[in-house]
Amino acid sequence: MSATTGPVVRGTVPTARRRSWHLGDALIPVLAALAFIYLLVPIVYTVAFSFNDAGKSNLVWRGFTWKNWQNPCGAPQVCEAFRNSLSVGVVATLIATVIGTLLALALARFAFRGRPAVNLLVFLPMSTPEVVLGAALLAQFLSLRVQLGFWTVVAAHVMFCISFVVVTVKARVAGLDPALEEAAADLYASPFQAFWRVTFPLLLPGIAAAALLSFSLSFDDFIITNFNSGSFTTFPKFVYVSATRGIPPQANVIGSFMFVAALAIVLVAQLVSHARGKRRAG
């Protein structure tokens, strides 16, 4: 770095420069550490209170117990809501990933008239507040007299997930060397074979990331769901509704479980790719 190898001139300027480096060196990680603590405090709280021997409400610490974890479905409706969220998440993710990937391919690979308009159409749902999206869909469902429930929630989730899938996959497609598809065609692959044998495998990590993102958005969504679910209950809705009478500790169990599961899945994936990278380098 310049501070050590740099100027021939000895004196105040280089010294000052060196000192400010050290200050920044220490300051930024400290700020970041504080920010991480801020991010994790409520999660620690949530996890801790999943072990609370709660009576009627889970507001005050009453002692440690395993029983909430042993019987996570103990509270009425909590597991049903959780199952609902999982099925909505899976179905919406599947649909949104397929539709969004196709759109992303069209946008990234083809120059056609109206492409800017399609880009705008994809961007708009992302730049519309959830409350507006929810209200708009509800206005439509009401006027068409559609029965609110599982499928209206799925329809709404697919709608806002598509945009995120498009953005994620499009970035991946744009990062792909177009010569690869040409090389496939040059090596006697039909357009379908070129897609299936070359493009798709290379896009897969991006598509998987988009699916993961979709699922997490869908699973965590409350506002749009609240507008379009009728009496159908998802996990976030369950927590919101029961907040007034006190959230059962089983909800904390499920929240903590999802956090740990997500952490574990991503960390295992990281470790695997890390190990693979090492093997390759060796």
């Binding site: 991010l39 999660i43 909800a251 929240g255 960390l267």
Partner: peptide, 20 residues
């Protein structure tokens, strides 16, 4: 690890975290 710590809160319902 740091990235996971940023993303993982998504999976604990944000309502739950707000109530926390």
């Amino acid at each position: 690890l740091l990235l996971v710590l940023v993303i993982a809160p998504f999976f604990t319902s944000f309502i739950l975290r707000t109530i926390a």
